[in-house]
Amino acid sequence: MPDAADWTTGKDALNYQACRACKHIFYIRRAFCPQCGAGEPETKTASGRGVVYAETLVHRAPVPEAREHVPYKIVLVDIEEGARVMAHGTLDLKIGDRVVAGYRPFLGGLVPLFGKI
């Protein structure tokens, strides 16, 4: 597997992958391209800029440890490189907002937190 250091491993970065063969851009990391099957996709670090595609404000936490954080906003963001990512967002975010990623600790890990540019 390629270098996977980003928020999913505790580093303040957001990575995506690009297929060297068919140029497909994707977010959920794997060792091959899900579109054409070619191996060794390139792992790249995103600029962090994007546009909000969807948003929800979570009032009912899935686990007791998350209760102190409610309400928190979860967003789907289309990053400018062409992938869609799920992340936290500031409470004011609406669909179509131009946003940039920051990071914050959450449930023992680090998660991306998008805010308006």
């Binding site: 999913t8 977010y27 959920i28 990391r29 979570v58 009912r60 936490a61 899935p62 686990v63 998350a66 954080h69 928190y72 979860i74 990512v85 799920m86 992340a87 936290h88 959450f106 449930l107 890990g109 998660v111």
Partner: peptide, 8 residues
Amino acid sequence: FEVPLGPT
């Protein structure tokens, strides 16, 4: 990529 964000 999703569950650590605390979704339901």
